[in-house]
């Protein structure tokens, strides 16, 4: 019974998805859905292998991953110190915390033409947008992490007469790491989404332009396959950072 409870929902989810694909396959074959705009799922599956083999997916993937990594490093390198700065100076925090939150809700990616003017159609434009998009959650979560350190831990540090730096290094920072990483996870995801999005919009870089190129060739199975591939990569990336976050978060 317990095994049923555990596996039945997953089986229904997967079964529902497969059933949906089979229904689309049948509807396209009988002509209810126009095969020129919705290719057969079986053709997309075949095209997935072709796209991976013929369209240089590995170097494209590495380029996108490299841009995402660069943006992620910049997000961490700028976002965490900014969060610490706001934690250290309360007045600055009270003056700017709402701005950072508002910035997180703003359509930042829309400034990509501005970076096109500054950096040209290059990876720097993509990295810049990825970095700016990923910063707000990292700043806010770093701030939250340090503010949420339990007072008892701070008092323990004080009772050991720790200096400010020792207090930071041995108590505040380790206690804040799980929350900081939750922010970093969000920041990395935002950065990756924007990297792929801007690659697609400016038709430059790795995986983003692949979709453009295939759709411009009117290779519908290929276009759908490339989109599936990018979605799959995004989901795997999301799963990987989630797993690292769980590993870092102490068991409650």
């Amino acid at each position: 019974m317990r095994a049923f409870d555990r596996f039945a929902p997953a089986a229904l989810g997967l079964g529902g998805f497969i059933l949906f694909l089979v229904a689309v396959e049948i509807l396209v074959r009988v002509g209810v859905i126009n095969g020129y705009i919705v290719p057969l799922p079986s053709a997309v599956l075949v095209a997935l292998g072709r796209v991976v083999a013929e369209e240089g997916v590995l170097p494209r993937f590495l380029l996108t991953a490299g841009e995402s990594l660069a943006a992620g490093l910049l997000v961490a390198g700028i976002g965490i110190p900014t969060g610490i700065l706001l934690f250290r100076f309360n007045l600055l925090r009270r003056a700017t915390e709402n701005w950072v939150a508002a910035f997180a809700a703003a359509p930042i990616v829309l400034v990509y033409p501005l970076f096109l003017v500054i950096f040209g159609r290059s990876s720097w434009t993509i990295i810049a947008i990825g970095t700016i998009a990923g910063l707000p959650p990292v700043v806010l979560k770093t701030l939250e992490g340090f503010s949420g350190v339990r007072p008892v831990l701070i008092r323990v540090g004080e009772s050991f007469n720790l200096t400010g730096w020792q207090q930071f290094r041995t108590i505040l920072f380790p206690a804040a790491v799980p929350t900081i990483f939750a922010g970093l996870r969000l920041g990395l995801i935002f950065a990756m989404i924007n990297v792929v999005g801007v690659e697609f919009l400016i038709n430059f870089g790795g995986l983003g332009p692949l979709i453009n190129e295939l759709s411009e060739r009117y290779d519908m199975p290929g276009t759908y396959a490339a989109i599936c591939f990018v979605v799959l990569v995004s989901v795997l990336f999301f799963l990987a950072v989630e797993r690292v976050e769980r590993w870092l978060r102490p068991a409650s």
Binding site: I193, F200, Y224, V231, F238
Partner: peptide, 14 residues
């Protein structure tokens, strides 16, 4: 949950 944080703009050709 897992499809939510994917770049949606890539669906634009479709």
């Amino acid at each position: 949950y897992y499809l939510g944080p994917t770049p949606k703009i890539i669906f634009f050709p479709i």
